[in-house]
């Protein structure tokens, strides 16, 4: 009873994936490249750093790094709280 449903769902999913694969644009060519071009052209002049990846991570998108630091801090707090009885 359930198997035809799953089979039809699988066919739909497969067709969707194949269509997506056909419609994919070539590797390394984004649809909208305005932001990439802006970063590559202006990052060195605006932030005076050579490493554009670090420039994006620490300057243009600093909230992401703040979140990462908070996640790490929370992980440490969790581990210390978890082992507080054992490691005493």
């Amino acid at each position: 009873m359930k198997k035809p449903v799953f089979f039809i769902a699988f066919i739909f999913f497969l067709a969707f994936m194949v269509l997506a694969a056909i419609g994919m644009r070539p590797f390394g060519e984004p649809s909208i490249s305005n932001m990439d071009d802006y970063f590559i052209e202006n990052a060195q002049a605006e932030t005076a750093a050579n490493n554009v990846v670090t420039t994006i991570v620490f300057d243009y998108r600093g909230f992401d790094t703040l979140g990462e630091g908070t996640v790490l801090f929370t992980a440490v707090v969790g581990i210390v709280a978890l082992f507080r009885e054992v490691a005493k």
């Binding site: 932030t47 005076a48 750093a49 620490f58 801090f73």
Partner: peptide, 20 residues
């Protein structure tokens, strides 16, 4: 001697990650 706050933040995050 370039980078501004990027270099300083790198050091702060490095301290945090190594200690964590």
């Amino acid at each position: 001697n370039t980078g501004g706050t990027i270099a300083l933040m790198n050091m702060a995050v490095g301290l945090e990650v190594l200690a964590a």
